[in-house]
């Protein structure tokens, strides 16, 4: 059986020392191993951004596509081969700005995919512009007088879009990240995992310390029931989204693949491409 080591490769990430994405990568590797996967059974599909490079740092099949489109590619992969564990990953700009349309619809569609957003509330790769996650007043290269737009609440969006698995974690807490990603992979449906992953180079406000001070964990809520959409929404609103843990799970909704008429358990990629002469003649007869 594969171990964490098998999910590592010898590529040195080009992330800045201290970047939150290092631990996210480690957590994905640990989670894959502890779920019992082999590297070739995993496909990591990533977007463009510092975070998007992650697919190249994990020993598994990896596709680094275009900005904002990791989810459509990931869904295509899943439809082609539902036996694969498909993990989509990228930044908050990738998923909540240019790719927001796909995020909402991928959540609605509910394919069995794990989507990990490395949320640093800024654009890292392009060197420090505002993101849909930036707070009002946040000064960046593109908002020198402070952002005036309302920051997006991805957890609320996810839940209102019909998500069946919503979690949030913090890059400093590798054990929690690993446990959440493990649960996300095991969840039979779309798993949305937002991870606070500080950009140490361009975001001097939302730092590791800042997150430590501001976040609460769902375990601190006492009798929190993460199968209740209403409780989940309430807590997200009460904490202004600054909570961690598995916030909402719905295990009763079947995944997209299992609802498609005629869709088999066996990977579509392994099925025959041919049709019989008899079938062909029938198909042609429709046009006479």
């Amino acid at each position: 059986m594969a171990t964490v080591k098998d999910f590592r490769n010898n590529v040195k990430p080009n992330w800045c020392p201290g970047c939150g994405d290092f631990s996210v990568q480690a957590a994905i590797q640990r989670a894959c191993a502890s779920v019992g996967l082999e590297p070739e059974e995993v496909a990591v599909i990533s977007g463009i951004g510092c975070s998007g490079r992650i697919s190249g740092y994990i020993n598994a099949y990896g596709y680094h596509g275009v900005h904002g489109r990791s989810l459509p590619i990931a869904q295509g992969v899943k439809m082609a081969n539902r036996e694969l564990t498909v993990i989509a990953a990228g930044g908050d700009g990738d998923g909540f700005a240019i790719g927001m349309g796909h995020t909402v619809h991928a959540i609605r569609r509910n394919m069995d995919i794990t989507y990990i957003v490395m949320d640093n509330q800024i654009y890292g790769l392009t060197k420090g512009q505002t993101s849909p996650r930036s707070s009002v007043g946040f000064k960046t290269k593109s908002t020198p007088d402070g952002s005036v737009e309302t920051a997006l609440s991805p957890l609320e969006v996810a839940i209102s879009s019909g998500a069946t698995f919503v979690a949030q974690s913090f890059s400093s807490n590798i054990n929690q990240m690993t446990a959440i990603i493990e649960a996300a992979i095991r969840h039979k449906g779309f798993s949305f995992v937002n991870i606070f992953s500080p950009c140490v180079t361009f975001n001097k406000i939302n730092t590791y310390e800042w997150f430590k001070e501001h976040i609460v964990d769902v375990s601190e809520f006492g009798d929190y029931d993460n199968t209740s959409r209403i409780q989940a929404m309430t807590k997200i609103m009460e904490t202004e989204g600054m909570l961690t843990g598995i916030i909402y799970v719905n295990d009763s909704k079947p995944s997209y693949e299992s609802l498609v008429p005629g869709f088999k358990e066996e990977a579509l990629a392994k099925q025959s491409l041919e049709i019989s002469a008899e079938d062909f003649n029938k198909l042609v007869a429709d046009f006479r």
Binding site: A43, I45, Y63, G65, P72, I73, A74, Q75, G76, V77, K78, M79, A80, N81, L84, A267, L268, A269, K270
Partner: peptide, 8 residues
């Protein structure tokens, strides 16, 4: 593109 990459 994703589906073709994955063999369909």
């Amino acid at each position: 593109i994703g589906a073709n990459y994955a063999g369909v």
